[in-house]
Design a protein around this nucleic acid. Structure first.
Lengths: 118, 118
DNA sequence: TCCTTAGTTCAAAAGTTATTGAACAATTGG
DNA sequence: CCAATTGTTCAATAACTTTTGAACTAAGGA
């Protein structure tokens, strides 16, 4: 049940930049980076957008090669493709995440939510 | 005759990423970086797009704070806002330019042209 | 002054991306 | 099996972005 992902060398710079150029998706990536290593499921991001819209944005991130999505039961476990991105575009993800970390204008994940660490 | 530019602190990360997410604009930025220090005029980029369309893309770059545009006579001298971008988003421009440098899929500036160094 | 060069503006058309709601599928727990 | 949970798909619409051509401005040279 593996969803379609580009291989590392299929990842395109303009597509990655365009995909990260959306505030909702940038907020998702920032949150994924802040929990690096921990695979998160879609519901974590429900305060950013509707379920349907989230599905759309998470598909964009996956198709661009920014995230990896594993289907486990009815859940999707989402992780950052850090090694592939670092190999392909050294330093890019780090600088984007560092810059996003400072950004008060970006939507926040886990502010209206019950924030229970599972 | 100074055209409107955002101040350094008005430069927004998602807007910069979205603006760089267009292949034509990324090619412009790559070329500007390759000639860093040398202000270029719009005509340098005529093999990327029509005059009208270039005007549009160069305005996007300027409004996002990626480039600075000086009006000199009937020309516009365009430079990268490297210091402002570096201050605001350390490492970002460098990693984008390095990644773009390798990218064979991006359109090229100065391939069909008469390439006379003025 | 007239012509050319360099670039902008405007409105329309074309294309693309984002958002929505309703309906669907698949897994899991009771 | 039934119901709930988790997420997807589809079609429609809304909202933007890109591209175009024609008309324009502003400066500079003959």
């Amino acid at each position: 049940m593996t969803l379609p992902h580009p291989t590392a060398d299929q990842i395109s710079l303009p597509i990655v930049l365009a995909v990260l150029g959306d505030p909702t998706r940038l907020a998702i990536v920032r949150y994924l980076a802040s929990k690096e290593g921990v695979p998160l499921n879609c519901s974590k991001f429900l305060d950013l957008a509707s379920k349907t819209n989230l599905s759309y944005h998470l598909a964009k991130l996956r198709e661009a090669g920014v995230t990896r999505t594993e289907a486990v039961g009815t859940s999707r476990l989402i992780t950052l493709r850090r090694d592939d991105l670092d190999r392909r575009f050294p330093g890019l993800l780090d600088s984007v995440i560092a810059a996003a970390g400072e950004d008060k204008a970006l939507p926040m994940v886990g502010t209206a939510d019950t924030e229970i660490d599972a």
